[in-house]
C-alpha cells in the first residue's frame, strides 16, 4: 500500500513543476468576463452594508463630543492660601458600569485670596500620575523622572510642557472645576 518515500518526494516535485501559474484574463468583455464582473461587483457591494455600521460603530468615539460640567469640589475656605491639595471629581461622561474609572483627581492650588489653579494630575510627558511633595513644593513623576514647580512649570526631566490646567471658578463661596473632558486636557 505505502508508496516508497522516494517515489513520494519525486511525485511531489513533479507535481510542483507541472503547476500552471494563474494568468489574468483578456480585457475584452465576453460572457465569462461579464459573469466575473457581476460576481466581484456584487460581492464587493455586499460588504458595504456590513462595513459601514461596523466602521461607524468603532469610529464613533472620534465623532462624539465630550460633555463638560462644572463640578463642585468644596468651599473656598477649605483651601488655604499657598497650599496644594488633591480633590476627586466624577467624569461627566461616566457610564453606569464604569466603576472607579468614572472618577478622576485634580490638584487644586490656592495662590492668593482670589486666585485658584486646578491642575490635571497627569504628567505632560506620558501621563503618569504626579505626586505633590508638599515640603519640596514640587510635583514629582514616578515614571521617567519629570519634575514640576508648584505653578506647574517644568523643573526637570522629559516633560515638554507645563502641567495642564482646568478651568476653575468660585460660585457662592464654593469652588467648582470644569470636569475632565479629555486625557489630553481641555479641548
Amino acid at each position: 500500500m505505502e508508496r516508497s518515500e522516494e517515489a513520494l518526494t519525486q511525485e511531489l516535485a513533479r507535481e510542483h513543476e507541472a503547476e500552471e501559474p494563474i494568468r489574468l484574463g483578456p480585457l475584452t468583455m465576453d460572457r465569462r468576463a461579464f459573469l466575473n464582473l457581476i460576481s466581484v461587483g456584487l460581492g464587493g457591494l455586499l460588504a458595504l452594508p456590513i462595513a459601514v455600521p461596523f466602521l461607524g460603530f468603532l469610529l464613533q468615539p472620534i465623532l462624539m463630543k465630550a460633555p463638560t460640567r462644572w463640578e463642585s469640589i468644596g468651599k473656598l475656605d477649605e483651601f488655604q492660601i499657598g497650599s496644594t491639595v488633591q480633590r476627586d471629581v466624577t467624569d461627566p461622561s461616566s457610564l453606569p458600569w464604569g466603576g472607579m474609572a468614572n472618577r478622576t483627581a485634580v490638584f487644586v492650588r490656592r495662590e492668593s485670596q482670589k486666585e485658584l489653579i486646578a491642575f490635571s494630575v497627569n504628567c505632560t510627558h506620558l501621563g503618569c500620575p504626579l505626586r505633590w511633595e508638599a515640603g519640596a513644593e514640587l510635583f514629582l513623576c514616578p515614571c521617567h523622572g519629570g519634575v514640576f514647580y508648584r505653578n506647574g512649570q517644568v523643573a526637570g526631566g522629559p516633560p515638554p510642557r507645563p502641567m495642564v490646567r482646568y478651568p476653575v471658578r468660585v460660585r457662592n463661596g464654593g469652588v467648582e472645576v470644569m470636569a475632565l473632558p479629555s486625557v489630553l486636557g481641555v479641548e
Binding site: L59, P61, L95, A101, N102, L126, L184
Partner: peptide, 30 residues
Amino acid sequence: FILAQQAARFPVLGPWLVDFLLAGHTIGGT
C-alpha cells in the same frame, strides 16, 4: 494613559487616534 499620550504625539491624527484607542476622550466605561 501612557499609550494614549504616545499616540497623541502623532501629527494631525494624534487626537483621533487617542479617541479611537480609548473609545472616548478619556478612560471610561468603554
